[in-house]
Amino acid sequence: MVHAHGLRKSFGGVHAAWDVGFDVEPGTVFGLLGPNGAGKTTTLRILATLVRADGGSAQVAGFDVARQGEEVRRRIGVVNGGMGLYDRLTGRETLHWFGGLYGMSAAAIESRIEELDGLLDLGDTLHRRCGDFSTGMKQKIVVARAVVHDPPVLFFDEATSGLDVLARRAVLDFARASTGRDRAVVWSTHVMSEAEELCDRVGVIHRGRWIGEGTVDELKRRAGDAADLEAAFFGLVRDAGEDAPIPERPEGGRP
């Protein structure tokens, strides 16, 4: 569903993503694991066609992110922790408006809202204005908005940031439930326990560099039978000689 190869992106000489590559198979949740500033958001923004990569290539749901941006955007949903809502629209109006951007009819949107209400317990959020929402309520509508068009690929970027335990649980459960035969989820987080619980495979990224990927158990083994994913993360970073500086310019020029 998602194939990234050698993705590179720099901002003013700083390498935000360096040779990032991974594949996400249908029916799985792929974790993108790394601390803040590791390059996870840049990678997801490249995949979501918001940012153009300096090098490498990526396909999402069978479409090239660089050349077929609009087709890619039709097939993805993006949730990140910093996403907000329009204060003066109700939850229902928000979903109708976004559904309209995907070319959905009002009846189709309404039927999808019913469905999402069952999955996310939208309740009160539908008829209240978003400006009056608590953080948890807000995130429910942010998630519902991202999936109103029922996309086959979902990107979650630090989606539980700032949420209380109940709201966090609801988002995690929703992400898990969102995988199916023709669906995939990319879950980007710095919270190891989330990746451990949710992800079928995990890719480790640090300071823009791709350290490695595998199942949680594989990563633990690779790090010398680490006790948990956090220990495995530090082991992998250390083994990769992470402290060695990344070259300012790619060898042989721009790939």
């Binding site: 066609t49 993006v78 990140n80 996403m83 976004f98 951007l101 995907y102 991202a146």
Partner: peptide, 14 residues
């Protein structure tokens, strides 16, 4: 500031 621009730009709108 609200973080809604990114949500708009990932929709299939030119």
């Amino acid at each position: 500031e609200r973080g809604t621009l990114e949500a708009l730009l990932v929709a299939p709108v030119r």
